[in-house]
Design a protein around this nucleic acid. Structure first.
Length: 583
RNA sequence: GAUCCCGUAGCUCAGGUGGAUAGAGCGCAAGAUUCCUAAUCUUGAGGCCACAGGUUCAAAUCCUGUCGGGAUCACCA
């Protein structure tokens, strides 16, 4: 299935055999040997550093080892050329037939080309979005949402058992604020005049329908009643409504979670105590006093004994508090329970996707998982940096509290789901991202979404054109895999094919590194090779995809671009973007 | 003061867990449309990979330090 993987096995076999024969030493460590396509294509289709890695172990000169191994590699059927270069690289050129045949594999596998099982069915929990249920999603949330979603798809694609999870922060003080804000809207719905939303409450208009619904459900039951009577009912009601709102927003982006996990439930059923007990058994909890933070002190700083977790034993800077001064649990305490819960559900691989403003929080949560699992489980926290929203280069402001922030809905309505998703994945997560409305709606190369989509649409157009040109030529998949692929001989055609066969490697590396943006870059690159090939047909008529008096070569090329469009479509699918046939 | 992230072409950014002569887009300069969508393509100029040390056959990549930019910094979420 994967040419490079096969080839790597070939090389390792060769080395093992040589060492069994006594040509090379025994018990060689092959772990650091890589078999990869070199950056510079003039160095061949694949190169290995085997000779250099083995040089020290065997006390031989790298180039001498390379010669020995090279001879054996040359004998392989799939290889057309071997050359020893530089300090001892073995550069290999594949037979064209090997590359051409891959077109069949691609067409047969369809959108599953690139799928693999290296995850071995291992359970992975990806927690993302997890926005406080106090209002609609705004642009800033968008990035983490898309990132987490694409990463999940990617992991699923390489054989992990992925659970997509949303942690609902429905237990903190912000939820009471939500309840009070909703209460105000409730009074408003009952006919009271609310001039201005008081400072500290959520002013957003999205709470008006909540107030209406409350009025409808409860009538004037809560009117003129003290907060203690209505707080819990209204809180739960409003939280549910907000989650509905958030789910709708996510749906607009094509994002669907498997599990919505309530923080409040941890408080209610005693899971927090349970989580902490486990840390306590390991002797990691104590009563103590923290050093005041360096730099400028908070105004209300005071020395105070606290219940603390020894996160410093796991690399954190200071130990972390689990109880507030009023005796209630901290947010962190709930997180201890939450991550412990995930571990109990069998997730030894956990991924949390957070905003960069939570950077200071990473070590303590990782510490928890390390402590609970005795190092058996790992938590990777992917921090998504800020999105700078621009219009014609001018910044557009957004702030969650103000009520006049730019919502996710605003953005999706303006430029569409696919554009948002793709653009959010055009940077690695830990670099800041600029999102310029004017730029992403352009139909030009400036806009990578468009550029990639255009390549896909072009293929569709050629296939249609071909059918017209050759009366009833059969461009079905079954027909195309029988095309005479050996006719794909031009250098630029082989280049395109070589980039295509890299796809499974790209998927794997992107998944294992937790870096979905690699997919976007690959797709852009692949698309640009296609556009280049297309344009070559302007100068050289013999390179066009459709050669009217030569059905055989036309079929071969149609098979090639069909395979190409499959990879583009598969890639776009991974990103959650729909490939277009026409634009 | 501390922690985390970033520093690569004029601008915006890639660089596949250490590989060979550092890449792409925009912008700039010069070209290509009787022809499958020129919504594209071709060529060129443009670099002390922030700086200084270290690790090794090999460093933009790993380690240490310095400088610049961003985020965060007891009990908030």
């Amino acid at each position: 299935m994967n040419i490079f993987k096969d080839f790597q096995n070939n090389i390792k076999e060769i080395i093992t055999k040589l060492s069994e024969e006594g040509t090379l030493e025994r018990d060689l460590d092959l772990a650091n040997i890589t078999v990869e396509p070199p950056r510079d294509p003039s160095h061949g289709d694949v190169a290995t550093n085997a000779a250099m890695v083995l040089a020290k172990q065997t006390k031989m000169k790298p180039r001498d080892i390379a010669e020995i191994i090279g001879v054996k590699i040359r004998a392989l059927d799939s290889v057309s050329e071997v050359e020893i270069a530089g300090p001892g690289f073995i550069n290999v050129r594949f037979c064209s037939s090997l590359i051409q045949k891959e077109v069949i594999a691609i067409i047969e596998a369809g959108l599953d080309y690139g799928r693999s099982t290296i995850g071995g069915g291992e359970m992975v929990n990806v927690e993302y979005v997890s926005v406080n249920p106090t209002g609609p999603l705004h642009v800033g949330h968008c990035r983490g949402a898309v990132f987490g979603d694409a990463l999940s798809t990617l992991l699923d694609h390489v054989g992990f058992a992925v659970t997509r999870e949303y942690y609902i922060n429905d237990a903190g003080g912000q939820i009471d604020v939500l309840a009070r804000s909703a209460y105000l809207r409730y009074l408003e719905a009952l006919g009271e005049v609310i001039d201005e939303i008081p400072e500290g409450l959520y002013p957003g208009e999205y709470l008006i329908p909540v107030g209406n619904a409350l009025a409808e459900k409860y009538g004037d039951k809560w009117k003129n009643k003290p907060e203690s009577e209505w707080l819990i009912d209204i809180r739960d009601f409003a939280t549910d409504k907000m989650m509905d709102l958030i789910r709708e927003d996510l749906d607009v982006l094509g994002i669907h979670h498997d599990v919505f996990f309530s923080e409040l439930s941890l408080h209610k059923n005693g899971d927090i105590q349970k989580g902490l007990e486990r840390l306590e058994q390991k002797g990691l909890i104590y009563q103590g006093v923290l050093e005041p933070p360096k730099g400028k002190l908070p105004d209300d700083w005071e020395v105070r004994p606290q219940t603390l977790f020894k996160s410093t034993e796991f690399g954190d800077d200071v130990d972390r508090a689990l109880k507030k001064s009023d005796g209630s649990w901290t947010y962190f305490a709930a997180d201890v329970a939450y991550h412990s819960n995930k571990y109990d559900r069998g997730f030894k691989k956990q991924i949390d996707v957070w905003g960069a403003d939570h950077g200071g929080y990473v070590k303590r949560v990782q510490s928890v998982l390390k402590a609970l699992s005795d190092g058996n489980a790992e938590l990777d926290v992917r921090l998504c940096q800020m999105v700078k929203l621009l219009r014609d280069g001018k910044p557009a402001k957004m702030s969650k509290r103000s009520g006049n922030f730019i919502t996710l809905r605003d953005v999706v309505d303006e430029v569409g789901k696919d554009v948002v998703r793709f653009i959010m994945l055009t940077r690695k997560n830990d670099a800041a991202l600029e999102f310029d409305f004017s730029r992403v709606s352009e139909q030009s190369k400036d806009n990578p979404v468009f550029y990639v989509q255009y390549a896909h649409a072009r293929v569709h157009s050629v296939l249609k054109k071909a059918q017209a040109a050759f009366n009833n030529i059969d461009v079905s998949e079954a027909s195309l895999i029988k095309a005479p692929l050996s006719l794909l001989n031009d250098e630029s055609e082989l280049m395109l094919l070589k980039t295509m066969i890299n796809w499974p490697r790209i998927v794997q590396s992107a998944a294992l590194a937790h870096e979905p943006h690699r997919i976007s870059y690959y797709l852009f690159d692949l698309a640009s090779q296609f556009h280049a090939l297309w344009n070559k047909g302007n100068d050289r008529v013999d390179l066009r995809f459709i050669i009217e008096d030569n059905e055989q070569i036309t079929l071969a090329r149609l098979a090639m671009i069909k395979a190409f469009s499959i990879i583009i479509a598969a890639g776009l699918n991974l990103l959650g973007v729909e490939p277009l046939n026409e634009m």
